[in-house]
């Protein structure tokens, strides 16, 4: 009988380490390649145990979770987390609702409306796709000329890129923080340092351990609850004006660098958590 299913579409260090941790703990782990999966939506599948959703493809991740959860399988994280955390605007609204400080933002629904909002609110601003990852297509708009060019180029793209999400450019040290939450606890956190204003590890940022403060943990618990998450990566910035602000919650967080620099066995903690949750 399967205790935990790891649903993946690409085996990264994270997925391998979950499998290894499961072997050490004597947990029955099933690895399921989502690319090979066809789910009969009329029949509850047997023998999944608790599913840890690890698909790197956003759409595959979201739809597989919707199907399995709808069929009565417990998936970590749940569909709502995938929907909410997968969209920067949805996350923003929920963070505000739950009293979590987050950078100010404006949404505009056409090029002209976006340029008008930028004129009113001033430059620089950061334009982010509401759905997107690894820092892709996130641009800093320094002035009207750059904004016109960048926003115009989005007019030819898939419609999601015509939802213009404009975020304040937060003045901060050249780093941000990634906190890994397993349930109501930050199990480890890192600074992601970068000379570039984008600090994503995938863009070459470097990691070092970050001390977890009570303020940070309380903020991250609220952020996790805002998106109804179980295991999430919360990204924070140290704003010169506002102190800590949360700018993103990651539904399928990567943790390779966090484990490497903090020495915390995150995969084991994830499995312990998965076995404890109600199915």
């Amino acid at each position: 009988m399967t205790d935990v299913t790891i649903l993946y579409d690409s085996i990264r260090w994270e997925e391998k380490s979950l499998l290894e941790a499961g072997k050490k703990k004597n947990i029955n782990i099933q690895m399921v390649d989502c690319k090979k999966l066809a789910l009969d939506l009329e029949k509850k599948p047997e023998d999944y145990g608790v599913v840890i959703q690890r698909c790197v493809s956003y759409y595959r991740n979201l739809h597989a979770t919707a199907a399995l959860e709808g069929l009565g399988v417990k998936v970590i994280n749940c569909l709502n987390t995938g929907v909410f955390a997968g969209n920067k605007l949805f996350t923003h609204m929920l963070l505000k609702k739950f009293g979590v400080p987050t950078p100010d933002a404006t949404v505009a629904f056409s090029k002209d409306a976006a340029l008008e909002a930028l004129e009113t609110n001033g430059y620089p601003k950061v334009i982010k796709p509401t759905v997107g990852s690894w820092g892709r297509l996130i641009s800093k708009l320094n002035d009207k000329e750059s904004a016109e060019g960048i926003i115009e180029s989005r007019e030819t793209m898939y419609p999601i890129y015509q939802i213009h999400y404009l975020e304040e450019f937060v003045k901060r040290p050249p780093r941000d923080i990634r906190a890994i939450m397993v349930g109501d606890k930050i199990v480890a956190a890192i600074y992601r340092n970068s000379e570039h204003w984008k600090t994503n590890m995938s863009l070459g940022g470097t990691a070092e351990p970050c001390k977890v403060t009570q303020e940070m943990e309380e903020m991250c618990i609220k952020a996790k609850n805002a998106v109804q998450g179980d295991i999430v990566g919360v990204d924070l910035m140290e704003s010169e004006e506002k102190g800590l602000v949360v700018h993103e919650v990651n539904n399928t967080t990567e943790y390779k660098n966090t484990v490497r620099v903090c020495g915390v066995d995150i995969p084991s903690l994830m499995l312990d958590y998965a076995l404890k949750v109600e199915r």
Partner: peptide, 11 residues
């Protein structure tokens, strides 16, 4: 052949 990195990949 591995899948190329999709536009919707990542976190």
């Amino acid at each position: 052949q591995a899948e190329t990195v999709g536009e919707d990949w990542g976190e």
